[in-house]
Design a protein around this nucleic acid. Structure first.
Lengths: 238, 238
DNA sequence: GAAATCAAAACAGTATACATTATAGACTTA
DNA sequence: TAAGTCTATAATGTATACTGTTTTGATTTC
């Protein structure tokens, strides 16, 4: 129960923003253990600043669903099967459309980035490097998402994707799943190259459905913890 | 530039939550003038509490898009035509599906509430009472939205609907528009009564498209202010 | 009279100190 | 030994004080 995470400040704007980005990155990279708790005063001490900016940053992350605030430190939310299914429903509604948008606006540089991410994912899938695979996956999504001109749409998607992403780390180490995902990415990529918005829409739809199915199949059927987890989550709403 | 708004605490949980709900209600009711600024220390003084809970509440509202934080107090965001169009795009993607869900889960009491809200809206439309019409509209939406079992979906919808709602007040005083909206509500209501999820989906789609068109047509073509407004908005992102 | 510079005020950001609350763990008792 | 209660502690919630920055307004100068 020590503090294996080392925080450092990222050089942008005020302290709250710095801490916010740093902690969010830590979460997104999956460097935060499920049961581990984040305490404002500890992080503040480590950074050599006061509690308030840290507290602000953590509370923002709570509002955005990245963390839950209990009376005993901030921790990762424990998602139930229902939670995950709910998140995937929203993603199913938003992402195909957003990707179709991106098909029109993505420029040559974007396509190049997409190709690189895809290649990386394929390499990681063959060697079985879950970490790299995970990163390539994120790069791929962030790339096309950056081309979406509707900010609110892309930000909403990014947030919900991040929420399941936390639990996703386990799933992504499963090699057959990696193969399926890579196939989906390639299909989407090819549609992007052809600038075929309809194909992008359809393939993204298929991709997300696939992801959800795989996800549900592989995730441990720990339904017995659902009530407990839900109560913890609920407490965090405040 | 005095302080015409009177804040009082709402009796739930900690001070931050109380202030948050109070201020959000004020915004949702359209009681906040567009140029008016909210200053934490002022509100705190009025409530007899310190700055911090007020500041926390205001910052949460900023994170949720209800306010923007400038260097000179918090104010309502100035939405450009693009912003509004972006918000409506997300709503178009989410609300029909959510309403279809509600068609299955809405109980008899819910239908009754819906009927009451509809009747109120019709009455307000004939007398031209914009305020009452506005309220009835919100009641109608909140009712079916409450029956949606996917919390994240309904909360996302509520938030985006609230964002345009701020500007909407003006539009809703236009009587021909009121007639169109009431007709849409009735169509949706009847589909709800029949528990016809498909019809609810289609009519909600139509309803939102209609709302957006009316909205764009009636809103002043003040495109010359767009850049300025966008820059104000951007500053608030921090 | 207009423009530029400077000063003062207003407000957000940050720090520190104090109050409150819920949980864990020890201690008591049946 | 197990169950219940109580206390100590860890963490958040709130208050106040201070700092830095930006804006506004006034004064001076051209």
């Amino acid at each position: 129960m020590t503090e294996p995470i080392e925080f450092k400040r990222i050089g942008e704007g005020n302290l709250r923003a710095q801490v916010y980005h740093q902690v969010r990155l830590t979460i997104q990279r999956g460097e935060l253990a499920p049961g581990q708790k984040l305490v404002d005063v500890d992080i503040a001490a480590q950074l050599g600043i006061s509690r308030m900016p840290v507290r602000d940053a953590l509370m923002q992350l709570v509002h955005e669903g990245y963390l839950v605030g209990t009376t005993r430190g901030f921790t990762l939310p424990t998602l139930t099967a229902t939670d995950i299914s709910n998140i995937f429903e929203v993603r199913r509604l938003l992402e195909p459309r957003a990707a179709a948008h991106a098909a029109r606006t993505l420029d040559a540089a974007g396509l190049k980035t997409l190709a690189a991410a895809l290649q990386e994912a394929e390499a990681a899938a063959t060697t079985g490097d879950a970490d790299l695979f995970f990163q390539a996956n994120s790069a791929f999504r962030n790339c096309w998402l950056g081309a979406v001109e509707n900010d609110r749409l892309s930000q909403t998607i990014a947030r919900f994707a991040d929420h399941v992403l936390v639990v996703r780390l386990k799933t992504l180490s499963h090699q057959p799943t990696q193969a399926v995902i890579v196939a989906g990415m390639r299909a989407i990529y090819e549609a992007f190259v052809r600038r075929d918005a309809v194909a992008v829409y359809d393939r993204m739809t298929h991709f997300i459905q696939n992801a959800e199915e795989r996800f549900m199949k592989l995730s441990p059927p720990s339904q017995q913890f659902d009530d407990e987890a839900a109560s913890i989550r609920r407490r965090g709403k405040s």
